[in-house]
Write a protein that binds this DNA or RNA. Structure first.
Lengths: 335, 335
DNA sequence: AACTGTAATGAAAGCGCTTACAGTTTCCTT
DNA sequence: AAGGAAACTGTAAGCGCTTTCATTACAGTT
């Protein structure tokens, strides 16, 4: 392996000078710069970032923890971060936590051991306390898709309550009044907040929240199907259903079709997240957009701002979801 | 930052011994091991992997280059790799090449600068020659989803020709004989090979390949739509269409519906890749499975085998695609 | 008690780079 | 031409660890 030393000898300068041309720090006379570049090329020199990081105490690396690598959800977020980090010449070290507390902690520890300059974390099992404690240490970290009051400055999240509100509000605007709600897991903050938004829209419109029209699923397509079937067992009528996410909406639509109900003619359906496949369904799924990419971008900006002192970036900590109109919702039938 | 030195002082041993207990190398008396562990805990010591890597010349890190982070395609592959690498205590450093030659080269260079122990590459713009040259260097690398004869040992790919064959063969088995083909870009190997498989199935069944029933798209949904429309402009009849990938199939299905043709009653459609949304369509899309996850696993195994000398793994270099039967294909109508 | 062979530990030389700090040139001013 | 500032370059001390080699401790033999 060719070292800076060998380059310096060939170029007839000191290794400090070689380092200077590599990093483009300080001033180096053009003539010697050329000599050094020449020597590097001739020797096929490759900078050793490891050694450089050790000496400079900066790795230009961001540690990234996501629950999973498969599926498009986190990929979109990472793509957002990657874009802004690339422009700043930072790289990403990614690890997965699999929604397991022990694993999440171990991965964070590993990232810290690698001396990442900062961390971007989407962790689901780790406690708030642990994160609060972590935030007080010397490594900057931003927590995405999660809101923790005590360290809200470090959090970037979506206003799920608003999303739930917008979904139901859209249905109400279309004239629906009997609106079912297929909820996600209620032990997750997202599930709770989306439902809360639903209720707010209802009460704002003077409609009563009907327990009988609500079903608690688990964010899987299967539970959307189950929800529709559970609803069918009761006598309660409904002309629209808001689902806690797109997977459940997909399951719900299929179940509805099995009952010979057309979407959106007989029943309007709205999802949440706007995952990749939402637009591939027929008709396209009306849903609430979860701007993962933007969140990823924002997280990266926060890092640039905080860990590298780039202060010319605007930051938002709570993003707003937006309605995405497609084909599964429709004006309510006249009474 | 607490160093090994401080730990060694507190424990009353040399730093070499501390290193030994950290890495669990050599033998250390249980009693001193406990003393050291104790000191580490008391001081809140965190191992500096950077320094360790520099000294040991091993980073336990695999560099990963994929075209994109968004979408689920590469995520599935990385998830496969991650699973097997985690078990071996290796980590991944990911970079994106965006199908741009300069970028791909730069990222590979960056990964090498970080002294990754090995590389897993899905690159699309870089030339075979460059990769062949790279493979001869000292860093082990595996190239996924691409086949290069000269370094086939380093390649892990899917038999796309077989996939194309299986798709068309399936339609033929269902009694179809007028089969349209919406191809992907023919400047890409995948596009060419899938088409070749299609032709082989045709000729094997004694059917003629009809240029008029073939359309070259670009793997995007939009081009599936365009393909169906182009087909409509000619008089040629067809009862089935094989698409070069699922996105195109989705586009084709929608276009078919616009022409009031039912899938699969009037026209059977088969896709390729089995992307995540394939099963969410109604009816579910019949397609050819592209086992990205397995490919990712295989790539990681190759690395373990090659870079870390773990020889108890079985390796396959060319994976076989499989037919995934869902609802978009159907027995041909009786003549 | 002297002797071995092995287990346990320490000393110290790096790994390849960065970065004060100091020293040397060069280039303007006056 | 002298003086000083500015530009450039070199010296050398680390960064925090691993690892070879040498040394010491110790249990088991004879």
């Amino acid at each position: 392996m060719v070292t800076i030393k060998q380059v310096s000898e060939m170029a007839g300068v000191s290794s400090a000078t070689v380092s200077r041309v590599i990093n483009n720090t300080d001033t180096v006379k053009e003539k010697t710069r050329v000599k050094v570049m020449d020597a590097m090329a001739r020797l096929g020199y490759r900078h050793n970032v490891l050694a450089a990081s050790l000496a400079s105490k900066k790795t230009n690396t961001i540690g990234y923890v996501v629950p999973e690598l498969h599926g498009s959800f986190f990929g979109n977020m990472m793509a957002g971060s990657e874009k802004v980090l690339r422009n700043a010449n930072k790289h990403m070290f990614v690890a997965t936590g699999h929604s397991d507390e022990k694993l999440e902690m171990r991965e964070i520890e590993a990232l810290l051991s690698r001396r990442c300059d900062a961390l971007i974390l989407h962790v689901e099992a780790i406690s708030d306390d642990y994160l609060i404690h972590l935030a007080e240490q010397d490594v900057p970290l931003v927590i995405v898709n999660r809101y923790i009051k005590e360290i809200e400055e470090n959090c970037i999240s979506l206003d799920n309550e608003l999303g739930g509100y917008l979904a139901t509000r859209h249905l109400i605007d279309l004239g629906h009044s009997q609106i079912a709600y297929l909820s996600g897991s209620l032990f997750k903050a997202d599930g709770v907040n989306r439902l809360a938004g639903h209720k707010r829209a209802l009460s704002e419109a003077g409609l009563r929240f009907d327990e009988a029209l609500m079903f608690e699923g688990d964010f899987q397509a299967q539970s959307g199907d189950a929800g529709i079937k559970a609803l069918a067992k009761q006598e309660r009528q409904y002309s629209a259903v808001v689902c806690a996410n797109d997977e459940m909406a997909s399951g719900a639509i299929n179940a509805l079709r099995e009952q010979n109900k057309c979407v959106p003619e007989d029943v309007s359906v709205i999802g949440f997240d706007n995952v990749d496949f939402a637009s591939y369904l027929t008709p396209g799924l009306t849903t609430i957009d979860y701007p993962m990419r933007e969140i990823g971008e924002m997280a990266a900006r926060w890092i640039l701002n905080r860990a590298y002192g780039d202060h010319k970036m605007s930051l938002t900590h709570v993003l707003e979801p937006k309605l995405v109109l497609r084909g599964t919702t429709k004006q309510a039938a006249e009474k």
